[in-house]
């Protein structure tokens, strides 16, 4: 079966957030959660020689997914087509996947006492309805998010770098990270500058996770669940105190500027 894949081109992203809104509607994402974030380098440089780069960021759909290995109850599954799906009926809210994922993708609804996770499932139901693309790729006005067969996306990524070597750094993020993923990024600047996780030491941790899971997760999970309830209460308290109901959807690398 053909595997799906994304190519996300930071040089094309205008940070309009159409993908974030489209995802929220398509997947009925709760108002206080998001499945896509904007990775934002912030404005760097000295006036008037400035730079700024952004890219939407969501589940990488790893080939050998750490989250699936870490999930004790089978709530996270990898499909034949490469999609990592999530079953909220099966989830016990242990949050272990959050620690397993090197990309920090699974997020919890911290304001819910019985938290579920929220994560991109590649609009699996939308694709099931016969649509060609997930909601984010379908709506992107600049084709910064493209969707297709994994191998085609990877080839396109390399071709773009080859054809316009001055426009991109020579790195397809996601090709080798965490043992390889289904989401590929290309960028005009090194990915650390965009706030992506460092890739130097990132190898597939799935094997280690599996050992950890088999031997220790149930206890960890129960402990974690108790701890997280405390975090929920703290967040609930802080939100009430600050009167904020905003979610953090833009992750700026540099704090000093640019997070408008």
């Amino acid at each position: 079966m053909a595997k799906y894949g994304f190519l996300i081109d930071a040089s094309r992203c205008i940070d309009c957030r159409a993908c974030l809104v489209a995802c929220s509607v398509e997947n009925n994402v709760p108002m206080k959660s998001t499945r896509i974030w904007i990775k934002d380098s912030g404005v760097t440089g000295e006036f008037p020689n400035l730079e700024r780069h952004t890219a939407p960021f969501h589940c990488m759909h790893c080939i050998d997914p750490s989250c699936v290995s870490a999930c004790t109850v089978g709530a996270l599954q990898k499909n034949e087509d490469g999609i990592i799906t999530y079953d909220n009926e099966a989830c016990i809210g242990c949050r272990y996947c959050m620690y397993a994922c090197p990309f920090e993708v699974p997020h919890f609804e911290w304001d819910q006492q019985f938290a579920l996770i929220t994560k991109c499932d590649l609009c699996v139901s939308r694709l099931g309805d016969g649509e060609a693309e997930p909601a984010c790729a379908a709506t992107c006005p600049t084709d910064a998010i493209q969707f297709g067969k994994r191998e085609d996306m990877l080839a396109m990524a390399h071709n773009r770098i080859k054809d316009e070597s001055s426009r991109y750094v020579d790195h397809v993020f996601g090709e080798h990270e965490n043992g390889g993923t289904s989401t590929f990024y290309i960028s005009p600047v090194p990915f650390e500058q965009l706030g992506f996780p460092s890739t130097e030491t990132m190898e597939s941790p799935a094997h280690f996770n599996r050992i950890a899971t088999e031997e220790g997760t149930p206890i960890i999970a129960v402990g974690a669940a108790i701890g997280m309830t405390g975090i929920y209460l703290a967040i609930e308290h802080n939100q009430k105190k600050n009167g904020t109901d905003k979610i953090e959807h833009v992750e700026t690398k540099h704090d000093s500027a640019g997070k408008e």
Partner: peptide, 24 residues
């Protein structure tokens, strides 16, 4: 359940901006 850009319309060409996506 969802609004999408109409690929046949010259002003959207299949895309919608965040405001258009939020129409519901």
């Amino acid at each position: 359940v969802k609004l999408d850009g109409n690929p046949e319309h010259p002003h959207s060409n299949g895309n919608l901006c965040p405001r258009g996506q939020s129409g519901l």
